[in-house]
């Protein structure tokens, strides 16, 4: 189990890195990268939940019966969830990138601390 738990710890570190970039960085692109790192950390976490050492693909054919498959196969559900989640992340990323370009056109800067017309 030692291997798996160190994976979880590295996963948490990745998440922390994402949050750090999101909060501490003022550059818009770096903030966007922070959001993406965070999303990927969660995706990785979901995949890890279904992970099995030496697991096989969850496809049943004539060489294996259902009981054996249940023991050896990796959990397919998180993989399906992560696919959906990656697509959602792509949509968000595209919108963020488009906004970053538009913001640069208007303000001529990527520094979030200079983009501060809204106050109060």
């Amino acid at each position: 189990m030692g291997g798996t738990s160190s994976l979880y710890i590295m996963n948490m570190a990745l998440m922390g890195m994402g949050i750090y970039a999101l909060i501490a960085k003022r550059h818009i692109i770096k903030k966007i990268i922070g959001v993406v790192i965070m999303e990927y950390a969660i995706n990785l976490f979901l995949i890890l939940l279904g992970y099995k050492t030496d697991g096989i693909a969850p496809i049943q054919d004539s060489s294996i019966n259902a009981a054996q498959l249940a023991v050896r196969a990796v959990d397919p559900l998180p993989q399906a969830l992560v696919l959906t989640s990656i697509v959602i992340g792509l949509g968000t990323l595209a919108l963020m990138a488009a906004q970053a370009i538009k913001l640069y056109e208007k303000y001529k800067t990527f520094d979030m601390s200079e983009i501060n017309r809204l106050r109060g």
């Binding site: 903030k31 906004q99 970053a100 538009k102 913001l103 208007k106 983009i115 501060n116 809204l118």
Partner: peptide, 10 residues
């Protein structure tokens, strides 16, 4: 609008 939208998005 862009500024508000970006903050909201993040």
């Amino acid at each position: 609008e862009l500024e508000a939208s970006f903050k909201y998005l993040i």
